[in-house]
Design a protein around this nucleic acid. Sequence first.
DNA 1: TGAAATGTTGGGGCG
DNA 2: ACGCCCCAACATTTC
Length: 481
Amino acid sequence: MTAAIWWIRRDLRLTDNQALHAALNHSPHLVPVFILDPALLASPDSGAKRLAFLLDSLRCLAADLASRGSRLIFRVGPPQEQLATILAESGASAIFAAEDFSPYARRRDAAVARNLPLCLVGGVSVHPPAAVRKADGSPYTVFTPFSKAWKSLPLPRSNALLPAPRQISTPLNLVSDPIPTEPTLPAAVPFPPGEAEAQRRLRLFIDGSAGAPAKIETYADHRNRLDLAGTSHLSPYLRLGMLSARQAAAAAVEAMEQASTASARRSAETWLNELIWREFYIAILHCFPQVRRSSFRPEFERIAWRNDQRAFAAWTEGRTGYPVVDAAMRQLAESGWMHNRARMIVASFLVKDLLIDWRWGERWFMQHLIDGDPAANNGGWQWTAGVGTDAAPYFRVFNPVLQSQKFDPGGTFIRRWLPELARVPDAHIHTPWEMPLALQRQVGCLIGQDYPRPIIDHLEAKERTLAVYAQARETAPEPGA
DNA sequence: TGAAATGTTGGGGCG
DNA sequence: ACGCCCCAACATTTC
C-alpha cells in the first residue's frame, strides 16, 4: 500500500490545511514530516527565540498527531536528502507541502521538485502572489490598488475551511529523531505554542470573553496604542501556520458583515487590511526577490549611511535615551515580540535618527522576533526607510517624543519595560532628560547615570538625514537618461 | 501607517 | 453697534 508524505514547513496545524488534505486524498497512509534545515539554522536571519517557539510548537503538533493515531517524523538535515530517505523508507509515492514564496524556500522547493515527486498545494497566504495582478499581468507595487484587487477576488469563508482530520493512519516503521530540547523558550515570551492556543486567541479576539468585549470591535481605535493590548497577538501563529491565513481572513470578513455598529465594521475592516498588508509583502518579495538584498528604489542604494557600531549597540540594547525606543527594544529582546507601532518608531529612529542602514535593523528583528518573517519584515523596514514599494516619503520622519506622547499617553508602556523610570512623573516620562536635577534626585533617576542622556538630538539628526537622502536622490541618474 | 510651517476661519474681548 | 485684534482650531502646504 502506497503512502503520502505531508512535508510540514510553516503550516504547523491540522485545521484548514490544504497540503495535509491533499496528502490524505492521495493516500490514507500519511507520513507527517518536519525537517530541520541546517541551512536555515546557519542563516544570519535565524533567531534562538523563534527556533525555540518552533520546537515547542512541533511538540504540540506531535501530540495532536499522536491523539489522532498518527506520529510526527522529525529529522535534521538537508531537506532533499531527508525526503529521499523517507520516500525510500516509507514507499510513499508523493510529497505534499504548502507553498512558501520566500526566495530561499523557492530555491529549495525547485531543487526538491527536480528529483522528487513534490506537489505544492495552497500556501502561506490566502491568495498566491500570482493571483493578485493588474490587468496587464504585472504585479502591484502600491498597497491600496493591491488591496482593492485582493478584495475583488472571492472572499474566504469560515464554512469553506477544511476541518482537522479526526483519525490519521501512519506507517509504523519510520524512525523519528528526537526534537531538540535546546534552545528553550524564555519565560518572558507571552506566546504559548501550539494550534489550540492559536484557535483560542482567534476566538478571543473575534468573539471576546464573558468579561471583555471583542478586541476586533475597537481595533481601529486601539491598535496603535502601546499601552493597551488592542491587537490580535496572532502574528507568531500566522508565521508558523498554527493558524491558516484564510481562517483569519474569513474571521475578519465575517466580523465586518456581522458588525452591529459602523465603528465595529470599520475596525474589522482595518484588521482585514492588516492581513492584506501581509499578503502584499508576500507578493512583493515573490515578484521582486532582490528587495531582500537591496532597496526597491535603486536611487536609495546611494545613501551615505553612518553605520556607527556604538550607536547600533545602544539601539539594540535599549539605551538610546529616548524612553519609547528603549522600552520597545527591551521588550523585543526579552519577550521576542514588539507592537507594530513600536516597530515603526524604533525603525524610524535607527534609520532616520542614527542613519544606520535599514538592513542592520531588518536582521536584528529577524534574530529576535518570534514572528520574524522575511516578507513582512523586509516590507516594513523598506517602508519605514522610505526606500521601498509604496513607501513613506523619505522626508517623513517620526518624532520619537510626539509618537510616545500620542501612543503611550500615560507612560505605562515605558514604565513597564524601563523600571528605572518607574517614578518619573508623567510630565517628564517622554523626555526624562528635561527633568531638573532636584527632581532627578527625588525620583531616584539621575540622567546620564541611571538612565542615558539622548544619544542624538532628534531635530539635528532629522536635518542631517534629509540632507543625506536628498543627496542620494540628486546623484542618482535620471530614469531613462 | 508624519511633522512642522503656513494659511484660514470664526468667536470673543475690547475700545 | 461696529471694527479691530488675538488666538485657538482646523485646514493646507511643504519637506
